[in-house]
């Protein structure tokens, strides 16, 4: 019972810590940039006779700018500091000399952070949705819907909410682990992001199945009809990469669980001392 009380205290403390920090509000503004961009594009776009430009902009922004860029970036900034920030400020001593095991400390902070970041990213995704949809005149386009007649932006937004939650879970787990591996986690995180997620995750090689980027894309493609067109790949490659009704949920959950388990092991065996410390 006392452990649960301590976990609850840490959970809410982590959330309040995030909300008090200027970094959170800066990230909030950065995450709203795609929706501002969408508004600008919609404002200056010539009158449209098809839904296609809106569909392209919607999924282009959410896939390329948001899921492949801003969500991992946000998770990188928070995941690497999940324990590292407390270690550097030496406040970690207060957290690990109380009622909780070290692994419980990191898991509780992880859950609180993941929850806040998911909400933040989902709100930003909703802002993109509203920005684009506010510029679409459905009545005027009713006669020209063509292949987009069945497009349900609200359904797609719901899918993106879930994919974003999955992305936050996976990326936050990976970056939390990196945060415990090295004293300079941001450098290693950028290398991981560029080499593994952005390069390997985008080449048609077998290793891409181990990347979060690929699995998130597979999940989105499996749940949003016609989305595979967005990636403009040759048909045989598209068929190989995105099987019908495929989903990467299980793979993302496995990757997250492995990363979190390793993080729990590391925090249990490693001393948490700041990178520059006076030894007395």
């Amino acid at each position: 019972m006392m452990t649960i009380r301590a976990m609850t205290a840490l959970f809410f403390f982590t959330i309040s810590q995030m909300l008090r920090d200027a970094k959170f509000w800066v990230m909030g503004i950065v995450l709203l940039l795609p929706s501002v961009l969408a508004l600008v594009i919609e404002h200056f776009a010539p009158p449209r006779h098809s839904l296609e430009p809106a569909w392209d902009l919607y999924h282009g922004l959410l896939q390329y700018m948001f899921l492949m860029g801003l969500v991992p970036l946000t998770c990188m900034l928070y995941g690497t500091g999940l324990i590292g920030a407390e270690t550097e400020s030496r406040t970690i001593g207060y957290l690990i000399t109380r009622r909780l095991r070290r692994s419980t400390v990191i898991l509780t902070r992880f859950v609180a952070t993941a929850l806040v970041l998911t909400l933040l990213c989902d709100v930003a995704a909703t802002a993109i949705h509203i920005s684009i949809m506010s510029g679409v005149n459905w009545q005027a386009l009713a006669a020209h819907l063509g292949q987009f007649a069945a497009w349900s932006p609200m359904h797609d937004l719901t899918v993106y909410w879930c994919v974003i939650a999955l992305g936050v879970l996976g990326f936050l787990a990976i970056f939390s682990l990196i945060g415990l591996l090295t004293a300079k986690p941001l450098a290693l995180s950028v290398i991981y992001m560029v080499v593994f997620e952005l390069i390997i995750g985008n080449v048609p090689a077998g290793a891409r199945v181990y990347t979060l980027m690929h699995q998130l894309r597979v999940t989105a493609v499996g749940a949003i009809p016609g989305l595979k067109v967005l990636f403009a790949l040759p048909p045989e490659l598209t068929a190989r990469l995105f099987s019908a009704n495929g989903s990467g949920i299980t793979q993302v959950l496995i990757i997250s669980a492995v990363a979190l388990t390793l993080a729990c092991v590391l925090i249990t065996v490693r001393e948490l001392t700041p990178s520059k410390v006076a030894r007395d």
């Binding site: 009380r5 109380r98 009622r99 909780l100």
Partner: peptide, 21 residues
């Protein structure tokens, strides 16, 4: 080592809760 933005009272209450109170 402090969370500088907390008041003294918030700091002590939080750590009391972390101790299971």
């Amino acid at each position: 080592p402090f969370w500088q933005k907390l008041t003294g009272f918030q700091f002590v209450v939080f750590l009391a809760r972390m101790s299971g109170l």
